[in-house]
């Protein structure tokens, strides 16, 4: 039977893609950020997952406002990292696992989650930057797992509630555990933490709120479902709503987890950056 080994969350700031392309990992600005990842590399090297479910939010590459799915799941043989319009180097395609994608879609729709299935889905920095952070050289890292992208809408309100995001993850867990093959799965939640790009409040960062979220997402994620969406905008910033991806990931890990590592650093670009690795306890 399929197993979920754990979940890893990280910010997915586009500037990180450029920093990697320019080998700035030891630059004084970047070092406190990149120092968060070696413990994650060690964990991945030890556990070698076969599949990565990458929960991210599209930023206007895969979807436009003409048709905006609240929850979309990729069901393609590969996922292309296409031009986003501002010159980030593009990576080669990431191999998919469409059979497992369809199994997840079947299971989740049966569980009353209304999924948009995507047989083509160009993926942007929200998907690829975390892959690069966790599997350096991605997609050509020899340990690169097959990928399934899951995108949630944070571009346009109404966005999903935190409760819905957590429950989505729980249904995703049920779906994965129902896959008959012995495969090892890791779930990513990418985006956040607090940041705001637009308006007179641009540059807003809220470490106190980020720490509250980081603290409770580990052992008491249900507490965070009391946060309303407008409260999330107010406290995490307009784009800090990407924390929803972390909640989706957390839901997929079951009740019992062990925190392996975390890092939190301000600022990277306009963002409070964070990463967290939680291992599932069976």
């Amino acid at each position: 039977m399929a197993r979920i080994l754990g979940g890893i969350s990280t910010s997915h700031i586009p500037a990180v893609g450029n920093a990697i392309a320019n080998n700035l990992q030891d630059d004084p600005y970047w070092k406190p950020f990149f120092d968060g990842y070696p413990p994650i590399h060690a964990w991945l090297a030890e556990h070698r997952p076969d599949v990565v479910i990458n929960i991210y939010n599209d930023h206007g590459l895969g979807f436009f406002l003409d048709q905006m799915p609240t929850f979309a799941i990729g069901a393609a043989h590969e996922y292309r990292n296409e031009d986003e319009g501002w010159g980030i180097p593009q990576l080669d395609p990431f191999p998919g696992f469409p059979e497992l994608s369809w199994h997840i879609i079947e299971s989740m729709v049966a569980d009353e989650f209304d999924i948009t299935s995507c047989q083509e889905l160009p993926v942007d920095h929200g998907f690829v930057v975390p892959m690069q952070l966790f599997w350096p050289g991605a997609p050509h890292n020899p340990d690169m797992p097959r990928a399934i992208p899951v995108s949630a809408n944070t571009v346009q309100h109404p966005i999903p509630t935190l409760r819905r995001a957590l429950n989505f993850g729980r249904a995703l867990r049920k779906a994965v555990l129902g896959w008959p093959e012995d495969i090892k799965v890791v779930v990513l939640g990418t985006g956040g933490l607090s940041h705001q790009l637009d308006g007179e409040r641009a540059g807003f960062i809220n470490p106190e709120f980020d720490r509250y979220c980081l603290e409770h997402i580990v052992h008491d994620p249900d507490r965070l479902t009391r946060i309303t969406r407008m409260e999330l905008v107010e406290k995490a910033g307009a784009q800090g709503t990407e924390f929803l991806m972390w909640m989706m990931m957390r839901g997929a890990l079951g009740d019992n987890v062990r925190e392996v590592t975390r890092n939190y650093h301000i600022p990277i670009s306009n963002t409070a950056s964070g990463t967290l690795l939680l291992e599932c306890i069976e």
Binding site: Q156, H157, P158, R201, M230, A238
Partner: peptide, 16 residues
């Protein structure tokens, strides 16, 4: 209908 934080200074809620 149940959220009092509809007006966040310096922030436009990009809704419908």
């Amino acid at each position: 209908r149940f959220d009092h934080r509809q007006h966040i200074p310096g922030t436009t809620i990009f809704d419908g």
